[in-house]
């Protein structure tokens, strides 16, 4: 069953087209990933689904209902985890969750139970009477999620819910997303962290400059560039000393991604150039610690499709 249908949706801010004729269908039970760099149009698309932003052209329906015509009805079955932490610092955790859940019609004991359940789910039960101002960034993110799920929405939209938090909190959130999905919620998950999307999403749309440039499962997307080989060279010296231009001049090299001590090189599969690559590092007095051949990931897919890195 199609939960969300976007049909030729366009949104402009002045002369800038933030979302450009995007068409998507998100099925029930999916964890649907929207992957793209900052400014790709992910949040704009999300805000149109939630009814927060008007749609310039095209249409969006949730459970078959047009978000413009049945605004209140479509909103009531959605839970939104905004990109920015949107909680009240002067209300306790429990009060925050209860307030937002109450806006969806929950009352009395049902409201109390639902709020406690959401806090339990996000691991904040013990902090229910504490004010968020004393929380770490990760705990605030979890409370941000608790406020979105207490009313048990069928569709949960998570807009970059792991921005700026420690790995432990990130893992907790990713596990929570999987659990929510197992409990029956359909999830739309936006991120510019491809590892997260790869880990949890059943289907992924890659967005860039307001357009969906690729759509499919993780494997399908990676197979889009099965004509590529990826080699990761780890060196002892800072990789910033590596001359990217020189590597690009090696036949077959299409992209070079320089990390702290690693250089990730994408090459056309039909060209054998590993010896030339290693030669470059030896001739330039770099100490090679390891050379790994990797299958292309979403980062490589994005790089291949746009010529830019996801975090550019």
């Amino acid at each position: 069953m199609t939960i969300v249908k976007m049909d030729q949706v366009t949104k402009k801010f002045g002369d800038v087209t933030a979302v450009d004729k995007v068409s998507l269908e998100i099925e029930e039970g999916e964890i649907f990933g929207l992957l793209g760099p900052n400014g790709a149009g992910k949040s704009t698309a999300i805000n149109m689904i939630t009814g927060l932003l008007s749609i310039d052209k095209g249409s969006i329906s949730i459970y078959g209902k047009d978000v413009r015509k049945d605004k209140m009805s479509t909103k009531s079955c959605v839970g939104i985890v905004p990109q920015d932490i949107a909680i009240y610092e002067d209300l306790t955790s429990l009060e925050n969750v209860k307030f937002f859940a109450s806006l969806y019609g929950l009352r009395g004991e049902m409201l109390e139970e639902a709020a406690l359940e959401a806090l339990e789910f996000t691991g904040l039960s013990e902090k229910k009477n504490q004010f968020p101002k004393s929380f770490s960034g990760g705990m605030k993110r979890r409370l941000n999620i608790a406020c979105a799920i207490a009313h048990k929405p069928k569709l949960i939209i998570m807009d970059e819910p792991t921005v700026g938090i420690d790995p432990q909190s990130r893992n907790h959130i990713l596990q929570s997303v999987k659990k929510l999905n197992e409990m029956g919620s359909t999830i739309i998950y936006t991120s510019h962290y491809m590892e997260e999307v790869e880990e949890i999403c059943t289907r992924i749309a890659i967005m860039d400059r307001g357009k969906v440039i690729a759509l499919g499962t993780c494997d399908e997307l990676e197979n889009m560039i099965n004509d590529k080989d990826v080699v990761v060279v780890t060196i002892s010296e800072p990789a910033s000393r590596v001359d990217e231009k020189s590597i690009r001049e090696i036949p077959g090299v299409e992209n070079v991604d320089i990390g702290e001590n690693t250089v990730k090189i994408t090459s056309a599969r039909e060209v054998t150039n590993l010896d030339r690559i290693i030669q470059y590092f030896i001739q330039n007095n770099f100490t090679i610690k390891s050379v790994e051949s990797k299958t292309p990931d979403l980062e490589t897919v994005f790089l291949s499709l746009t010529g830019r890195k996801l975090r550019d």
């Binding site: 939630t50 009814g51 927060l52 605004k71 209140m72 009805s73 909103k75 009531s76 959605v78 939104i80 905004p82 920015d84 932490i85 949107a86 909680i87 009240y88 610092e89 937002f100 806006l103 969806y104 019609g105 406020c147």
Partner: peptide, 14 residues
Amino acid sequence: DDKTGARVLCAPVR
């Protein structure tokens, strides 16, 4: 500023 207004308006609140 705190983005809570937007969150409230994402709920079925006019």
